[in-house]
């Protein structure tokens, strides 16, 4: 089963690499990983989609938590959430198929962002299932290139906030 994790990580050199290294070192099955700024200056949010048996996913969560740079780890799979992905998809078109492709684009509420005499590039956003669907529908036309952002996600309703800074007193 797929699990979506939301991580708040220190915006330090190496934090991203540390998470990526963990996945290769432990052999976890990684589907997508995305990282970007948050409302807090020195904290980034990573959204990670992984799959595996419950035991493996639980271990992955613990290992992510164990990293010194991760401030918070939430398995969003356990809660109501909004998940979105952005895809840029370039498709071959013939004069006959152009209308059909545009229609598909409309149905998926996408946008045409580029076109030349051979290919048309669509921009589509949506939850993971929708992305799979449009890729399926466009495949027969011949997808030339595709770039996907990976999933980004937030919990619905109350938002996770980065914790207030706390000071640890050493012993």
């Amino acid at each position: 089963m797929k699990h979506t994790f939301s991580l708040l990580v220190e915006n330090t050199f190496g934090a991203f690499d540390r998470v990526a290294t963990l996945f290769s070192a432990k052999g976890f099955n990684l589907h997508s990983i995305s990282i970007g700024e948050t409302e807090i200056r020195d904290i980034s949010r990573m959204t990670i989609v992984i799959s595996g048996e419950a035991k493996v996913v639980e271990q992955a969560e613990k290992q992510l938590n164990r990293l010194v740079d991760t401030v918070k780890v939430v398995d969003l799979t356990k809660s109501q959430r909004v998940e979105r992905e952005l895809a840029l998809i370039s498709v071959n078109y013939k004069r006959r198929s152009l209308e059909e492709i545009k229609n598909i684009c409309d149905v998926f509420r996408g946008k045409v962002v580029d076109i030349n005499n051979k290919t048309i590039t669509l921009e589509v956003t949506g939850p993971p299932a929708k992305m799979e669907a449009i890729v399926n529908v466009l495949s027969p036309f011949g997808i030339i290139e595709m770039a996907r952002s990976g999933t980004v996600a937030l919990k619905r309703g109350e938002q996770q906030k980065a914790p207030q800074k706390e000071y640890l007193h050493s012993n």
């Binding site: 990580v9 010194v68 401030v71 914790p163 000071y167 007193h169 050493s170």
Partner: peptide, 9 residues
């Protein structure tokens, strides 16, 4: 004197 490590407790 103080150490700040938000992700390590």
């Amino acid at each position: 004197e103080k150490i700040e490590l938000r992700g390590y407790k």
